[in-house]
């Protein structure tokens, strides 16, 4: 079975003997295609602007761009970090949602707190959160980050990470499966889409 394919423009099809085909070079083909795309896009944009006004359009555009490229901070505290890592593996492949873990908090807009937070590490968590640029969101992943989990009344454990930073989405589970984590991120994307400054 062959998939239906769009025939390529004749300029990029080489001749049968492998010699370079005459005509338009490949790079100019791309330019031509982009140029073909621009007028209808401009027309559509002008149409939308005329109907809704500039201000009401810009925020949704930023929301749309932001929610489709969430960069979580690449760090792990406990066993939830294993599920976090598994979500970026081949089976669940979180990068298809545009979620790319970054190693520096200055490149991130999402902090996924995956594990038990102790009072000893609390000030480091706050420092990392403060280093992230605005706008930023926090997901409490798992029971420990949500409310302390089985260690809630322990002397060394923060009873829920919302005592330290504002949390947008809570994910239950001990640990949550990668599907649950992805579901939490998709719910956060809905929140971001409805955001109004």
């Amino acid at each position: 079975m062959t998939l239906p394919t769009k025939p390529l423009p004749p300029a990029v099809q080489g001749s049968a003997d492998g010699s370079s085909a005459p005509g338009v070079p490949f790079s100019e083909i791309e330019t031509v295609r982009a140029k073909e795309f621009i007028p209808p896009a401009k027309e559509a944009l002008r149409d939308v602007l005329a109907r809704k006004g500039t201000d009401s359009l810009i925020q949704p555009v930023f929301n749309w761009a932001g929610r489709n490229s969430l960069f979580p901070l690449h760090w792990g505290l406990a066993c939830c970090a294993i599920e976090f890592a598994a979500a970026f593996g081949a089976r669940w492949d979180a990068e298809r949602f545009g979620i790319v873990p970054r190693s520096s908090p200055r490149q991130c807009d999402l902090m996924i707190v995956n594990g038990t937070v102790t009072w000893k590490v609390a000030h480091k968590l706050i420092t990392l959160y403060e280093q992230m640029p605005e706008p930023k969101w926090v997901i409490a992943m798992g029971n420990c980050a949500t409310g302390g989990g089985p260690f809630r009344s322990a002397y060394s454990v923060v009873p829920g990470v919302d005592k330290l930073v504002p949390v947008d989405v809570y994910i239950a589970g001990c640990p949550p499966r990668p599907e649950a984590m992805l579901d939490g991120i998709l719910r956060l994307e809905h929140l971001i889409q409805e955001r109004r400054e």
Binding site: W119, A122, H123, I126, T127, E130, G148, R152, S153, V157, V158, P159, K163, L164
Partner: peptide, 9 residues
């Protein structure tokens, strides 16, 4: 549990 006061560096 009561929240402790956390100070960053």
């Amino acid at each position: 549990p009561e929240p402790l006061e956390v100070k960053t560096r």
